[in-house]
Nucleic acid binder design. Structure first.
Lengths: 115, 115
DNA sequence: CCCTCATTTCGGGTTTTTCCGAATTGACTC
DNA sequence: GAGTCAATTCGGAAAAACCCGAAATGAGGG
């Protein structure tokens, strides 16, 4: 992931509604959720949400596929990986030691979250 | 890390100059770099950069400490950890399996970056 | 083909971000 | 305390993001 892509991803996630959308879709991954259902859950206007979905999709964080009448949006989990990789590789680039520390803390974090 | 803090961090990183600042400081971690030096390296006006530094600091990504006349800014590596943790815990919250996959890919990423 | 449902596009007005020069503050030196 | 260097604050203008109602598009069903 290059710097421009990372900026797009950060910008996409730097908004309350969009971050909530992403979290919601991650929870339902790998299944998709129809746009209107997302709007209802998040109490957002359809036209407003459509713009947000477009931003998230353009940033590579979402996919949208038609199913009958509705379009189901799904989180791209590999995008999370890319973003995490970007954060860590930029860190490790200068100092390997830092990454070791971070990964150690990370393991604990994941242990906690995975139960 | 709560959602609001994550949004602040994402917003702070979602800007070319600010992301470059952060990358630069991560490379020099745990040492700090004076504001004017950062400005020169990134070809930015001091007043503009000052605003960016303030945003990054408010988001908890940087610390600034006076040393004689200058203020040295340093990246907070624990902030990267928090942010990564936020991304992964929000992911794992719904589906543990996803995290395992991501961490596997992550190990490879780190291996590559650490040489 | 008409109607309906799901979603997007459009137009606008409001709010926020961004930038930089000029002036200011703070710290150190003599 | 005058001079200097480092950094921030201030003012205001240009650009971008945001929101939402109304209209348009697209897919199915009768």
């Amino acid at each position: 992931m290059d710097q421009d892509s990372a900026i797009d991803a950060f910008a996409a996630l730097a908004h309350p509604t969009r971050l909530s959308v992403f979290k919601l879709l991650v929870q339902h991954a790998p299944d998709g959720v129809p746009a209107l259902t997302i709007a209802e859950r998040l109490d957002a206007k359809p036209s407003t949400l459509s713009g947000h979905l477009s931003v998230l999709k353009r940033a590579g964080l979402l996919t949208g596929t038609r199913h009958q009448r509705e379009i189901r949006y799904a989180a791209r989990l590999d995008a999370i990986n890319s973003l995490v990789g970007f954060l860590l590789s930029d860190c490790c680039g200068g100092k390997v030691q830092n990454c070791k520390d971070i990964l150690t803390l990370l393991d604990a974090e994941v242990e906690r979250g995975s139960t």
